[in-house]
Computed example of a mutant assay.
Amino acid sequence: MERRTLLKMIALLTGGAVIGGNAFLTGCSSSKESGLKERLNLTPQQIAFLDEVADTILPTTPKSPGAKAAKVGSFMKVIVNDCYEAPDQQVFLEGMDSLDAACNKMHKLGFVEATAEQRLSLLTAIDKEAKEYMAKKGDLPNHYYTLFKQLTLLGYFSSEIGHKQALRYNQAPGRYEGDVPYKKGDRSWA
């Protein structure tokens, strides 16, 4: 799957432009080249937190492993460090604290300690809030949940697990077939 096609699909799924999309299209650059002030040094606990958020967005199903198995938290760290501008890096970092605080407020538990149902209800409410925010944002910074969701989708569907277990992957597809029969329940092609 081409990078541009994947970015278009993620933008369509999340209801907006892909944040940092220009960096994905032109290639990531080092912090010195892009003018980023500093790299985020995420702790293993923060990466585990991001894995839990990603796994709530794309959980394990009977047919494929979830985002946690694809190590999306580590992917997020790399992309945020190498491709995001300083304001989006700050939103991302503060977003982890905001998400945990919102979970504490809603369920009296931190996000990692919450049950799968509690996490899902929280992320559903925040997703709605993020869509409303992004619709009227203007010059405001990006919403942190939009960053999390887009990176989860990009990280998962560009991983080996996403390609080979969630999608139908055929490394050497052979000849072009423009009209392939679809059976209900079939996975999409990678």
Rank of each mutant, 00 (worst) to 15 (best):
A116N: 07
E177K: 15
Y182Q: 10
Q150A: 13
E129N: 11
A11E: 13
L93W: 05
A70T: 00
K105C: 03
Y182D: 05
G21C: 14
L151G: 14
T146V: 13
A101N: 10
K108L: 01
A114I: 01
I10V: 15
S159F: 06
S159K: 01
E177T: 14
H143E: 10
A101P: 08
M134G: 05
A69T: 02
L58E: 03
D186S: 05
E113S: 02
I126M: 09
F49N: 03
G66N: 00
C28K: 02
N22L: 12
G162E: 11
N142I: 13
D55V: 01
D97K: 14
S158E: 12
A125Y: 06
L13W: 01
A70P: 03
G73N: 00
D179M: 10
P59T: 01
R39G: 10
F49D: 04
Y145R: 11
C28W: 01
R168D: 08
L167D: 03
D127S: 15
E113Y: 01
P141R: 13
D186C: 03
Y156F: 15
E132F: 08
I126D: 02
C28I: 05
K8L: 09
T61S: 01
A125T: 12
F111C: 01
G95D: 00
L123Y: 02
K77W: 05
E129I: 09
S98I: 08
I161Y: 04
G174R: 13
L122G: 02
T5D: 05
N22R: 10
Q45R: 13
P62H: 00
G21Y: 14
E113H: 01
S98Y: 09
K63T: 07
A116R: 09
K164Q: 12
D186N: 04
G155A: 11
I10D: 05
G155P: 08
S188L: 07
